[in-house]
Amino acid sequence: MALKLQQSIAALGSNILLAGLLVVSLVLVTLYFREGEEGVLHQVQSSVSGAVIPLKFASGAIGSGTDSASAALDNLSASEATLEALRQQNQELREQIARLEEYRQEANRLEDLLGLKEYYVLDTVPARVTSRTAHAWENTITINRGERHGIIAGLPVMGQSGIIGQVVSVSGASATVRLLQDPQSGVAVLIQSNRAEGIVRGSLDGLLYLENLDVNAGVQVGDVLITSGLGGRYFRGLLVGTVVRVDENQGGETRRIVVLANASARSLEEVLVIVKMDSEGDAPLPSDTPPPEDGNGDEGESGVDGDGA
């Protein structure tokens, strides 16, 4: 009898604990979705992320070591043909740089003549990538610059030669950057050649897709994509990537356009957080961005420009 009573009490206690923990979990999930980016749970998340920075440093060190070893192995095993192709590419790039320098100087002269400001003047904070995400459903990196260095959530982040993502959470000395390849990322873009507008979205397979492009807009492999500034999150005119594949269906009504990001996320070590950009078309900072009232503002609400947290 006593045994049965003891069992009943134990089972009841266990069930009450189970129910309690499940209710607490559900309440937390609900609160997380209802509160804004400045909410308590988001803040706790940022704080925890900041508190484990030393461990993330260790993780980053292991990752860098592995990448270096892998790159060294690749270099050692590179064939003569590969090396020759790289030499040729190097030569072409040198010629291209010389040509671009000419254009830049010409543009400077013209700007001086017209009394215009330099089109793109970036105010950036350099940061080092300390680690990658420990979460399979996310594609994020942690950088060693945070609130103390003027970083706020929403700022765009550049790699060596183009946009790589956006700051999504910040703690004192670190920040989390959601990469373009994350399925919750989205950035409003222009095709540089014909100014057609679309949205580049990340996906679970790690590729970038150009979506929401006008049916009649021409797009072909090699087209360069730059940020359009619509949605108010990214500054206008930043390089995003290049179209590498266009799969059209028979009627041409829908297209699947794959984009190669200009900056490779895998090889990231240092990044630049853009805190300010002087250009005639720059977008205001996210914190003081009122929702656009014209037709272009729709994208801001549909998760464009990385607001997926």
């Binding site: 923990l21 484990v52 459903w137």
Partner: peptide, 11 residues
């Protein structure tokens, strides 16, 4: 809490 996913889901 270590990621940016909704808090409480995995719990």
């Amino acid at each position: 809490l270590l990621g940016n996913a909704p808090v409480g889901a995995m719990a």
